[in-house]
Design a protein around this nucleic acid. Structure first.
Lengths: 219, 219
DNA sequence: GCCGAACCGTAACGTACGGTACGGCACCGA
DNA sequence: TCGGTGCCGTACCGTACGTTACGGTTCGGC
């Protein structure tokens, strides 16, 4: 089950006009959900449907390009795992947690995940894989070096970085994403997010923090 | 055009024939995703479309009735929190975890959640709320008494049962549900599920298990 | 046996929407 | 000035599907 990343650098081969069109599609997607029509996109973007079809092939192509376009915008700076003490590690974990909570609770992410979930059902294309690659798997890719660095410097104790990451993911996201996707009103204030991030980091350290006095004690 | 919205507890007021029709719709939903058509349901159930419209009003009514019908089937026996020692508590937690993993990884749950997520996007009805009530919130309702009993008998230590439940939820589900909904092939074998359930229970006890020697020590 | 109700199967209608064609306009190099 | 290109706006086509209508069959009640 490897996720072949669908040729990212296509995000670069876009003219400004095309980016504007995709932005319009994205806004429409957030506002109207999956029932956005080609006509609506054309009207919103002040372009002709003929142009849409020439540029993106068909409706699925437009959808895929839109999702990839958003993904290319989210690309964040990699976090270096240097300067390793317990305080900076904790701060990094909290940062990752709050960033992730902010992402999954954003209107854009919710809309994109909804359309991707719907398309995964009528499995025609790989929208779900695109969202997954730029969401959960991108997060893992960025966080794992931090976890490994923490292990190297004796702050963390785990056997499998993937397993540790998934636990962290669960501690952070909990039921938030599925509830939001299912339409649950669940207002996450800044304070709530920050508090949850601190809690998730503490819990993660309670589970995987190396005991200072002794070696690993596994039951 | 007066179709009284088929309110809840109508799950009982269904004839056998109607249940059979909803079962057919459910099977079709699992097989074909959200693009199930009224014609397909009628053909699969060997009934006429006129009957479908008479019984369920319109397509959304049929969808809602189908989701509620499945929900009414999932209703499980409540777990009594008696006989409280650390072994039985652990066993209960593991049981909840494995049951939940089995639910969210089932084809039926995935299909239902997909259609509910899609409908939450085009927010016309409350399919998402129905799924949420019979999924995540029903689980909380059943698990919380166990958690409270554990706290009463000094095995668990937490301030807020809701918070503890959400942590347990996160430790169990992690990234499984969103990955499955997004179409990730993620085969969960019996052994994997059982192992994950044991791990989740252990992690939960590590976070919320009362220290035997002393009182709560929070840093 | 007869009637009406319920229901099956299917044909038909209306509409929404993906996709295509075409006329017009602006720009550009020659 | 002129042909070519790219794009906008819009009319148009074909189809899928929700919804309705209708003839035919079964069945319970009298």
């Amino acid at each position: 089950m490897l996720h072949s990343v669908p040729d990212i650098e296509t995000a670069e081969a876009l003219t400004e006009r095309q980016k504007a069109v995709l932005d319009a599609a994205l806004r429409l997607l957030v506002e109207e959900g999956d029932q956005l029509t080609m006509t609506a996109v054309a009207r919103r973007a002040s372009c002709s449907k003929e142009t849409l079809y020439k540029w993106f092939g068909d409706r699925d192509g437009l959808l895929t390009a839109t999702v990839q376009w958003q993904a290319s915008k989210v690309r964040v700076a990699p976090v270096d795992g240097k300067g390793l003490d317990i305080a900076s590690l904790t701060a990094s974990l909290e940062r990752f947690a709050s960033d992730w909570l902010r992402v999954i609770s954003s209107d854009t992410s919710i809309a994109l995940n909804r359309v991707a979930v719907g398309h995964a059902g009528s499995g025609k294309d790989n929208l779900g894989a695109v969202v997954l690659d730029n969401g959960r798997f991108a997060l893992a890719k960025r966080l794992k070096p931090v976890l490994e660095a923490g292990r190297q410097s004796g702050l963390l104790d785990f056997a499998d970085a993937e397993m540790a990451f998934r636990t962290f993911f669960g501690l952070v996201a909990r039921d938030v994403q599925i509830r939001l996707l299912l339409g649950d009103r669940l207002e996450l204030t800044e304070a709530t997010i920050d508090g949850d991030a601190v809690r998730a980091a503490q819990q993660f350290l309670a589970l995987f923090g190396a005991k200072p006095g002794r070696e690993a004690s596994e039951s």
